[in-house]
C-alpha cells in the first residue's frame, strides 16, 4: 500500500485532533454543567439542614425569638443566592430538565418556608418587612408580560433591598405550592402578585406597579432580598 503523502497524513491527523479537541471541550462543558447542578444539590441539602436548625432555634427561643433575627437574614440571603444559581442552571439545561425541575421544587419549598418564617418573625418581633409573592407561568401564551414583571421586580429588589420577593412557577407540580396558591386565592391569570397580603394581576408599567407597594419601602435603604425568577 502506498504511504500517505505529508499533506494527506497531516490532513487526516488534523481531522482526528480537531474532533478530539471538540469532543474534549463538549465533555468539559457538560462536566462543568453537571458539577454546577451537583453543587446546587449540596447547597440545597445544606439549606434544608439550616431550615430545620432555624425552626428548632425558633422553637427553643420562643420566648425571645427576635434575638436571633440575624440567622433568618442570613438564611434569606442564601435562598436568594441559590435562586440566582438555579436561574443559570435553568438557562443552561432548560426548564424541562428533570434535575432542574427537582431542584426548582426544592427551591420553591425553601422560599415558602422562608416566607412563613419571615411572617412569623415579623409578627413576633414587630418588624414590617415588605414582601411580594410573584406567580408566573413559563408558557409565553399564558403570560405575555411575565418577562417585564420579573425584570421590574429584579430592579425593585436591587434598588430597595428591604423588599423580599418570592417568585413561583404557577405550573410547578408541587403540593405545597398548590396549597399556597389556594390559601392566597391566586387565579390562573399572570402575572399575579401578593403584595402586603393584597392580590393583584397584570403588569403594565413600573410606575403603576410601584403604587402596589407601601410608600415606606421607597424611603428605605437597607436590605435583604431573595430572588426573582422569570
Amino acid at each position: 500500500m502506498k504511504p500517505l503523502s505529508l499533506p494527506a497524513r497531516n490532513a487526516l491527523l488534523a481531522l482526528l485532533i480537531t474532533l478530539a479537541i471538540i469532543g474534549s471541550i463538549v465533555y468539559a462543558i457538560n462536566y462543568l454543567d453537571q458539577q454546577r447542578l451537583a453543587e446546587l444539590s449540596a447547597i440545597q441539602n445544606q439549606l434544608a439542614t439550616d431550615t430545620l436548625s432555624l425552626e428548632t432555634q425558633f422553637a427553643l427561643l420562643e420566648s425571645a425569638p427576635c434575638e436571633d433575627i440575624a440567622s433568618g437574614t442570613e438564611f434569606s440571603r442564601e435562598v436568594s443566592d441559590l435562586g440566582d444559581r438555579l436561574g443559570i442552571a435553568e438557562g443552561r439545561a432548560g426548564n424541562r430538565d428533570p434535575q432542574v425541575l427537582q431542584l426548582k421544587k426544592q427551591y420553591t419549598l425553601l422560599q415558602i418556608r422562608d416566607y412563613l418564617l419571615t411572617k412569623k418573625l415579623s409578627s413576633s418581633c414587630g418588624l414590617k418587612p415588605v414582601t411580594a409573592l410573584y406567580f408566573y407561568s413559563n408558557d409565553p401564551q399564558a403570560c405575555t408580560t411575565c418577562d417585564k414583571a420579573g425584570y421590574a421586580l429584579s430592579y425593585l429588589r436591587q434598588t430597595y433591598p428591604t423588599l423580599r420577593v418570592y417568585s413561583f412557577d404557577y405550573d410547578l407540580d408541587l403540593s405545597a405550592l398548590k396549597t399556597l396558591i389556594a390559601v392566597e386565592k391566586i387565579k390562573p391569570q399572570f402575572p399575579a402578585f401578593v403584595i402586603q397580603d393584597k392580590v393583584s394581576y397584570g403588569f403594565t408599567h413600573l410606575d403603576d406597579f410601584q403604587k402596589l407597594f407601601p410608600k415606606a419601602l421607597f424611603k428605605s435603604a437597607t436590605s435583604t432580598a431573595t430572588t426573582t425568577k422569570k
Partner: peptide, 8 residues
C-alpha cells in the same frame, strides 16, 4: 428595551 417598561 422591551422589558424595561419604566425601569431606568
Amino acid at each position: 428595551f422591551s422589558l424595561s417598561a419604566g425601569v431606568p
